[in-house]
Simulated assay, not measured.
Amino acid sequence: MADQTFSSVLNTVSVVSQFVTLLYIAFGILFAHLYRKRVSTEDYWVLVWLIYDFFIHLTLEGPFVILSLLGTVQESNHFTAQLWKEYAKADARWGVSDPTVVSLEILTVTIVEVFVVFTVNGIVQNKPYRHFMQICLCVCELYGGWMTFCPEWLTGSPNLNTSNPLYLWVYLVFYNGLWVVIPCYLLYQSWLAMSHAFSETGEVMSEKQETTVTTNVYRTYNTRSKNRSEKME
Rank of each mutant, 00 (worst) to 15 (best):
I111K: 08
L154N: 13
F19A: 15
W153M: 11
L30F: 06
E75W: 08
V217E: 10
Q82P: 00
Y87S: 00
L166N: 15
Q189A: 14
E75F: 08
T108V: 02
M147K: 09
Y167C: 01
A90M: 05
L60R: 15
T155Q: 07
Y167E: 02
Y221R: 15
E152A: 12
N126P: 02
E75I: 01
T110C: 06
Y188G: 02
F79P: 00
R219I: 09
S195V: 03
T220G: 06
P63M: 05
T148I: 06
L168I: 01
A92F: 04
Y129I: 02
G156A: 06
R130W: 10
N77K: 13
L186P: 00
T220H: 12
Q189P: 04
F6V: 00
F6Q: 04
V139T: 07
T201R: 14
C150F: 10
S157R: 06
F27H: 10
L107E: 04
W179P: 00
A197C: 05
H78Q: 11
K85Y: 10
V120M: 10
T148R: 13
S40T: 13
A90C: 03
P99W: 09
N164W: 08
A193T: 08
I29S: 06
P165D: 05
E200Q: 14
S40V: 03
Q74D: 13
K85F: 11
L30V: 03
T21R: 12
T223Y: 06
V101R: 05
A81G: 00
F174C: 03
R38A: 10
W153Y: 11
D91M: 04
T211D: 09
R130K: 15
R93M: 03
Q134N: 15
K231G: 02
